[in-house]
Protein backbone atom coordinates (compact mmCIF):
# COMPACT_ATOMS: atom_id res chain seq x y z
CA UNK A 1 0.00 0.00 0.00
CA UNK A 2 1.32 3.38 -0.96
CA UNK A 3 0.46 6.28 1.28
CA UNK A 4 1.10 9.57 -0.43
CA UNK A 5 1.39 12.85 1.46
CA UNK A 6 -2.11 13.65 0.25
CA UNK A 7 -3.48 10.21 1.09
CA UNK A 8 -4.53 8.68 4.36
CA UNK A 9 -2.44 9.42 7.42
CA UNK A 10 0.07 6.71 8.18
CA UNK A 11 -0.90 6.84 11.84
CA UNK A 12 -4.40 5.70 10.87
CA UNK A 13 -3.08 2.30 9.87
CA UNK A 14 -2.65 1.44 13.55
CA UNK A 15 -6.37 1.82 14.16
CA UNK A 16 -7.13 -1.28 12.10
CA UNK A 17 -4.42 -3.48 13.58
CA UNK A 18 -5.89 -6.50 15.39
CA UNK A 19 -5.71 -6.21 19.16
CA UNK A 20 -3.70 -8.99 20.74
CA UNK A 21 -5.12 -10.57 23.86
CA UNK A 22 -1.78 -12.09 24.91
CA UNK A 23 -0.76 -8.80 26.48
CA UNK A 24 -1.86 -9.45 30.04
CA UNK A 25 -0.45 -12.98 30.23
CA UNK A 26 2.93 -11.76 28.95
CA UNK A 27 2.80 -8.93 31.45
CA UNK A 28 2.29 -11.33 34.38
CA UNK A 29 5.11 -13.56 33.11
CA UNK A 30 7.36 -10.54 32.71
CA UNK A 31 6.73 -9.45 36.30
CA UNK A 32 7.61 -12.85 37.67
CA UNK A 33 10.71 -13.18 35.50
CA UNK A 34 11.80 -9.74 36.65
CA UNK A 35 11.21 -10.69 40.29
CA UNK A 36 13.42 -13.74 39.78
CA UNK A 37 16.12 -11.79 37.97
CA UNK A 38 16.35 -9.15 40.69
CA UNK A 39 16.50 -11.82 43.40
CA UNK A 40 13.09 -11.06 44.91
CA UNK A 41 11.96 -14.60 44.14
CA UNK A 42 14.62 -17.29 44.44
CA UNK A 43 15.13 -20.84 43.16
CA UNK A 44 13.08 -23.46 44.98
CA UNK A 45 10.71 -20.91 46.40
CA UNK A 46 7.04 -21.74 46.32
CA UNK A 47 4.81 -19.47 44.26
CA UNK A 48 1.29 -18.59 45.34
CA UNK A 49 -1.48 -20.66 43.77
CA UNK A 50 -3.33 -19.22 40.80
CA UNK A 51 -6.15 -17.73 42.91
CA UNK A 52 -3.68 -15.91 45.19
CA UNK A 53 -1.55 -14.83 42.24
CA UNK A 54 -4.62 -13.53 40.40
CA UNK A 55 -5.73 -11.55 43.45
CA UNK A 56 -2.25 -10.13 44.07
CA UNK A 57 -1.77 -8.92 40.51
CA UNK A 58 -5.36 -7.89 39.89
CA UNK A 59 -5.90 -10.22 36.93
CA UNK A 60 -8.46 -12.97 36.32
CA UNK A 61 -7.81 -16.57 37.42
CA UNK A 62 -7.76 -17.57 33.74
CA UNK A 63 -4.96 -15.09 33.01
CA UNK A 64 -3.00 -16.27 36.07
CA UNK A 65 -3.38 -19.92 35.00
CA UNK A 66 -2.22 -19.16 31.46
CA UNK A 67 0.74 -17.19 32.81
CA UNK A 68 1.76 -20.07 35.09
CA UNK A 69 1.60 -22.53 32.21
CA UNK A 70 3.65 -20.19 30.00
CA UNK A 71 6.25 -19.86 32.78
CA UNK A 72 6.29 -23.64 33.14
CA UNK A 73 6.84 -24.05 29.40
CA UNK A 74 9.77 -21.62 29.43
CA UNK A 75 11.32 -23.40 32.41
CA UNK A 76 11.00 -20.54 34.89
CA UNK A 77 8.81 -22.57 37.24
CA UNK A 78 8.27 -26.27 37.90
CA UNK A 79 5.11 -27.81 39.26
CA UNK A 80 4.91 -30.65 41.77
CA UNK A 81 1.74 -32.61 42.45
CA UNK A 82 0.46 -33.98 45.74
CA UNK A 83 0.20 -32.75 49.29
CA UNK A 84 3.37 -30.67 49.24
CA UNK A 85 2.71 -29.72 45.63
CA UNK A 86 2.42 -26.35 43.94
CA UNK A 87 4.47 -24.16 41.65
CA UNK A 88 8.09 -23.48 42.51
CA UNK A 89 10.75 -21.24 41.01
CA UNK A 90 12.96 -23.63 39.01
CA UNK A 91 16.65 -24.20 39.74
CA UNK A 92 19.23 -22.53 37.45
CA UNK A 93 16.64 -20.00 36.44
CA UNK A 94 18.85 -16.92 36.47
CA UNK A 95 19.50 -15.40 33.05
CA UNK A 96 21.97 -17.77 31.47
CA UNK A 97 24.59 -17.29 28.79
CA UNK A 98 22.90 -20.03 26.74
CA UNK A 99 19.57 -18.24 26.75
CA UNK A 100 21.18 -14.92 25.91
CA UNK A 101 23.09 -16.51 22.99
CA UNK A 102 19.88 -18.07 21.69
CA UNK A 103 18.25 -14.64 21.83
CA UNK A 104 21.20 -13.10 19.97
CA UNK A 105 20.87 -15.72 17.19
CA UNK A 106 17.16 -14.94 16.86
CA UNK A 107 17.69 -11.24 16.25
CA UNK A 108 18.79 -9.75 12.96
CA UNK A 109 21.52 -7.10 12.74
CA UNK A 110 18.85 -4.68 11.61
CA UNK A 111 16.74 -5.32 14.72
CA UNK A 112 19.71 -4.86 17.03
CA UNK A 113 20.78 -1.61 15.33
CA UNK A 114 17.26 -0.20 15.33
CA UNK A 115 16.72 -1.08 18.98
CA UNK A 116 20.05 0.57 19.82
CA UNK A 117 19.07 3.76 17.96
CA UNK A 118 15.81 3.97 19.89
CA UNK A 119 17.61 3.23 23.16
CA UNK A 120 20.21 5.91 22.42
CA UNK A 121 17.56 8.51 21.58
CA UNK A 122 15.70 7.98 24.86
CA UNK A 123 18.80 7.60 27.04
CA UNK A 124 20.43 10.70 25.52
CA UNK A 125 17.27 12.75 26.12
CA UNK A 126 17.32 11.59 29.76
CA UNK A 127 21.02 12.40 30.14
CA UNK A 128 20.64 15.90 28.69
CA UNK A 129 17.81 16.84 31.06
CA UNK A 130 19.53 15.08 33.98
CA UNK A 131 22.61 17.26 33.45
CA UNK A 132 20.41 20.33 33.81
CA UNK A 133 18.52 19.13 36.89
CA UNK A 134 21.04 17.18 38.98
CA UNK A 135 21.96 18.03 42.55
CA UNK A 136 24.65 16.60 44.84
CA UNK A 137 22.38 13.86 46.27
CA UNK A 138 21.49 12.72 42.73
CA UNK A 139 25.15 12.34 41.83
CA UNK A 140 25.90 10.31 44.97
CA UNK A 141 23.03 7.93 44.14
CA UNK A 142 24.11 7.70 40.50
CA UNK A 143 27.72 6.86 41.43
CA UNK A 144 26.47 4.14 43.81
CA UNK A 145 25.29 2.23 40.72
CA UNK A 146 28.73 2.13 39.10
CA UNK A 147 29.80 -1.50 39.50
CA UNK A 148 33.27 -2.56 40.54
CA UNK A 149 35.53 -4.49 38.16
CA UNK A 150 35.30 -7.78 40.08
CA UNK A 151 31.48 -7.95 40.20
CA UNK A 152 30.11 -10.94 38.24
CA UNK A 153 28.41 -10.51 34.87
CA UNK A 154 24.86 -10.79 36.22
CA UNK A 155 25.36 -7.99 38.73
CA UNK A 156 27.18 -5.91 36.09
CA UNK A 157 24.19 -6.21 33.82
CA UNK A 158 21.78 -5.17 36.57
CA UNK A 159 24.02 -2.27 37.61
CA UNK A 160 24.22 -0.94 34.03
CA UNK A 161 20.46 -0.95 33.62
CA UNK A 162 19.96 0.57 37.09
CA UNK A 163 22.49 3.29 36.24
CA UNK A 164 20.51 4.36 33.17
CA UNK A 165 17.23 4.22 35.11
CA UNK A 166 18.82 6.50 37.69
CA UNK A 167 19.74 8.94 34.90
CA UNK A 168 16.04 8.95 33.94
CA UNK A 169 15.11 9.50 37.58
CA UNK A 170 17.48 12.49 37.76
CA UNK A 171 15.87 13.85 34.58
CA UNK A 172 12.56 13.61 36.47
CA UNK A 173 10.54 12.66 33.40
CA UNK A 174 8.00 9.89 34.03
CA UNK A 175 7.42 9.33 30.29
CA UNK A 176 11.11 8.95 29.44
CA UNK A 177 11.61 6.66 32.45
CA UNK A 178 8.74 4.39 31.37
CA UNK A 179 10.10 4.26 27.82
CA UNK A 180 13.54 3.34 29.11
CA UNK A 181 12.08 0.48 31.16
CA UNK A 182 10.27 -0.83 28.07
CA UNK A 183 13.45 -0.67 26.00
CA UNK A 184 15.44 -2.53 28.63
CA UNK A 185 12.76 -5.23 28.65
CA UNK A 186 13.06 -5.47 24.84
CA UNK A 187 16.82 -5.94 25.16
CA UNK A 188 16.12 -8.80 27.56
CA UNK A 189 19.01 -10.95 28.69
CA UNK A 190 21.18 -10.01 25.67
CA UNK A 191 23.16 -7.52 27.74
CA UNK A 192 24.44 -10.38 29.91
CA UNK A 193 26.84 -11.42 27.13
CA UNK A 194 29.17 -8.42 26.95
CA UNK A 195 29.19 -8.15 30.75
CA UNK A 196 31.12 -11.44 30.88
CA UNK A 197 33.96 -9.76 28.95
CA UNK A 198 36.57 -8.00 31.12
CA UNK A 199 37.49 -5.69 28.21
CA UNK A 200 33.89 -4.50 27.89
CA UNK A 201 33.60 -4.04 31.65
CA UNK A 202 36.75 -1.94 31.72
CA UNK A 203 35.62 0.25 28.82
CA UNK A 204 32.11 0.81 30.18
CA UNK A 205 33.37 1.58 33.70
CA UNK A 206 35.26 4.56 32.22
CA UNK A 207 32.17 5.69 30.31
CA UNK A 208 29.98 5.46 33.43
CA UNK A 209 32.44 7.67 35.34
CA UNK A 210 32.41 10.16 32.44
CA UNK A 211 28.60 10.25 32.32
CA UNK A 212 28.38 10.82 36.09
CA UNK A 213 30.99 13.59 35.86
CA UNK A 214 29.15 15.28 32.95
CA UNK A 215 25.81 15.17 34.77
CA UNK A 216 27.51 16.55 37.88
CA UNK A 217 29.14 19.35 35.84
CA UNK A 218 25.76 20.27 34.28
CA UNK A 219 27.17 19.53 30.82
CA UNK A 220 24.25 18.14 28.77
CA UNK A 221 26.31 17.66 25.60
CA UNK A 222 28.92 15.47 27.27
CA UNK A 223 26.26 13.54 29.19
CA UNK A 224 24.39 12.77 25.96
CA UNK A 225 27.56 11.69 24.17
CA UNK A 226 28.51 9.49 27.13
CA UNK A 227 25.28 7.49 27.27
CA UNK A 228 25.29 7.10 23.49
CA UNK A 229 28.84 5.72 23.72
CA UNK A 230 27.71 3.35 26.45
CA UNK A 231 24.92 1.93 24.29
CA UNK A 232 27.21 1.80 21.23
CA UNK A 233 29.77 -0.17 23.23
CA UNK A 234 27.06 -2.73 24.02
CA UNK A 235 25.63 -3.04 20.52
CA UNK A 236 29.04 -3.06 18.83
CA UNK A 237 30.04 -5.92 21.11
CA UNK A 238 26.82 -7.82 20.34
CA UNK A 239 27.09 -7.32 16.58
CA UNK A 240 30.74 -8.43 16.56
CA UNK A 241 29.81 -11.53 18.55
CA UNK A 242 26.86 -12.30 16.30
CA UNK A 243 28.95 -11.95 13.13
CA UNK A 244 31.32 -14.65 14.44
CA UNK A 245 28.45 -17.11 14.50
CA UNK A 246 27.57 -16.94 10.84
Amino acid sequence: MLLSPNGASRSLAAVFTPIKSRGLVDEVCGRIEQAVETGLLTSGQRLPNETELAAALGVSAVTAREALSQLRASGIIRTARGRSGGSFIADNVLPSRERALAQLQDLSRLQIRDLALHYQAIAAACAGVAARRSDAADIATLRSFIPSANDDSASWRLALSEFLLEVAAIARSARLARELIRLQADLGTLTLLPCADAGYRGCTAVILEDVAAAIEAHDPGAAETGVKDLISATTDWLLTEQAKRY
Partner: peptide, 17 residues
Protein backbone atom coordinates in the same frame (compact mmCIF):
# COMPACT_ATOMS: atom_id res chain seq x y z
CA UNK B 1 -7.78 0.39 44.00
CA UNK B 2 -5.13 -1.43 42.01
CA UNK B 3 -3.03 -3.55 44.41
CA UNK B 4 0.58 -2.34 44.18
CA UNK B 5 3.74 -4.49 44.28
CA UNK B 6 1.74 -7.36 45.75
CA UNK B 7 4.09 -9.96 44.24
CA UNK B 8 6.74 -8.76 46.73
CA UNK B 9 4.57 -10.13 49.56
CA UNK B 10 5.45 -13.65 48.40
CA UNK B 11 9.16 -12.94 48.75
CA UNK B 12 10.95 -13.95 51.95
CA UNK B 13 13.37 -10.99 51.63
CA UNK B 14 10.91 -8.32 50.49
CA UNK B 15 12.27 -5.77 52.98
CA UNK B 16 15.29 -5.32 50.66
CA UNK B 17 12.94 -3.62 48.24
Amino acid sequence: LEHVDALANFSPNSISR
